[in-house]
Design a protein around this nucleic acid. Structure first.
Lengths: 207, 207, 207, 207
DNA sequence: AATGAATGAGAGTTCATTCAT
DNA sequence: AATGAATGAACTCTCATTCAT
């Protein structure tokens, strides 16, 4: 029985695709360039992926499923809304902040078209937002979070802020540690931007 | 002396482009389809736009310059951080919430590639975020806003929430009034999502 | 009755066309560029020429008819084969050697296609070669020229040499006086390139 | 390992191109027509040639390099100026006289523009004329050729006559054997067109 | 399983020409 | 007569995908 000369071709192809998509953009990326980068023949790609679009989709699917899985696991050991949100935020920011090419693909290339976006929203993003929503619901139930704001708004706000943090980081020339932004983001979300004269000591306490 | 046989061709072309881009996506959109929609010949488009990309760019430029101008004007009559932010938020949400095709183009099609995004960020978005940033600075100076959070974070958070509201609305099948979200968004941003036991009456007041 | 604001539009257009054709080549030349060079509107050109090709054709027609007319006139005052051939050669070389752009158009651009070449050969070139042929016939009749060579060969040889002189001059970066080549060309044609030991004094006699 | 399904694609494409260029002219020739004639897909052409222009250029390059090589070889076995020139002339006239399509391409299509002509002159034509020039130099050195005529003039004259013979043949409807013209051409060049009563026996001696 | 030569559909753009003014 | 805005046909070349080896 013939064995693949090098193992894990699909993974290598996906890795190559991230590089090429990030460098050139999805449309300008050439399948043959991905093949070259992955050191396989053009045709080999079609043994593992239906077409160019399927590469992008698979990329998203694998990354998200893994990400969500890990997120769920880690959340199991965490108690409290603030800690939970911060865990999610850190995960989110570290995943993308730790791999610039992946971040470019997720923030930019994956948003080619409503078709893509609807597809992604309907599949993994829904799960991801459900994860967030669950934490928020818990918070609203136990009185940690305001109940006068719709849960959907809070979820979108949380995701929207994180998403913008990443996009901004991707487009910025500065290289800073995205993960460190998790804490302030959560703090902003929970306590708001407004100064409260009734809590003048707030700042001192939290450094 | 030859006169344009029908006036306002560029505007008609842009209008047609919004429709077609929203329907098909930028890449799948055919220049000849835009021409047909605008009721001009294919070649006529190239009298007013350098190429297909220039149509998209011009679309963004004209919309943003107008939007920012109006925003600045309206802000002149407004006092206070909350009111200012709400003005901006309403503007933002109403502009896009009032024209679904435009929203699709702005939320999805314009984000094709880092090239586009960098270009847009560098031009109008910078101005737009500066507008927001200015309001925030004012708030931090007069003590309305917390000073322990970096201004950049607040700006990104504000924009990120609005952006996600619009994207979510674009992708949702439900048709709701985006403009109405302005108030809760600003409230969330200013007061945070966290319930404050020190302010137990908060809810009652606003409920 | 409306008069043309500037006279002689067709001539100005042809003049402009020579410039543009020489600079860009016939195919790459844009009708609108010829119009700009001639300082007329694009449409004006079509009042005087059927189409782009007609500009080139007219150029050739006018130049050749004038050239042949002048040639015939001048030949009337000339006696002898050598003098006649030299008159023609000088005419030929001076016409083109005196206007580089025209030379480029005649040596290069007019030879676009067999269609053009057949057309030109059939019209003016035929007349031109007939003029040469006539001189040669005369020479063969009066014994000045060898009768063992077909008249057609002599005609082609004469024209071929002149043509190559011009082409070579057009493509050369050096700027020399083409007209001065007429005498040696005719001498070569008449006496040949071979040294004749029987006529060792030949050179001295002719200086 | 993938193999070409049919061998010698580039050669077949060039052959097809000669046909199509000769029939339609370079500009009017459609790449897809060349493909059809060569029985390959349009895209296949671009595996072997950069673009349409490159087909024409390759055509010239391959033909000329082969032609010059053969010419040099054959010249090695030949002694004397007359014989050498006649060898070259025969080669020249037979190459093109033996393939009407090729002749059309070389005499007409390749002379599209100064760009082409300069390119060709600078590459192979230079080599070709050098070959001729060498023979002439030899002749001038050993006293066979007149020294009072510049070598460049003789070279141009020789090439000009041959070139005109071919062009004339291409444009003529008559089908005659071009190769047979080599001898009279060389004779004309060497002995000239002028009758020399002083050398009645010349022909007999050298014929 | 892997290859890569071959395929061929498909679209942006140019520019000669027209014609309402 | 003159203009120049508008037209729309036409064509090269690219590149995702296939399939014989």
């Amino acid at each position: 029985m013939a064995r693949p000369r090098t193992p894990d071709k699909p993974a290598r192809i996906l890795q190559a695709a991230v590089k090429v998509f990030a460098r050139k953009g999805y449309f300008a990326a050439r399948v043959s360039e991905i093949a070259r980068e992955a050191k396989v023949a053009d045709g080999t790609i079609y043994l593992y992926f239906r077409n160019k679009e399927d590469i992008l989709v698979s990329l998203f699917d694998r990354t998200m499923s893994e990400h969500i899985l890990k997120g769920r696991e880690e959340l199991r050991c965490v108690r409290g809304v603030r800690a939970s949100l911060q865990t999610i935020a850190e995960h989110h920011l570290r995943l993308l902040g730790g791999n610039r090419d992946l971040a470019v693909v997720f923030q930019v290339e994956l948003r080619q078209s409503t078709k893509f976006m609807e597809r992604f929203t309907a599949s993994w993003l829904k799960d991801y937002l459900a994860l967030v929503s669950q934490v928020i619901e818990e918070g609203q139930r136990d009185g940690t979070l305001r109940r006068d704001l719709p849960r959907g708004l809070l979820t979108k706000a949380f995701f929207g802020i994180l998403d913008e943090m990443v996009t901004s980081w991707v487009l910025s020339r500065k290289r800073y540690d995205l993960g460190k932004e998790a804490a302030p983001v959560v703090d902003l979300l929970l306590r708001g931007a407004g100064a409260s004269p009734a809590r003048p000591d707030t700042r001192g306490r939290r450094g």
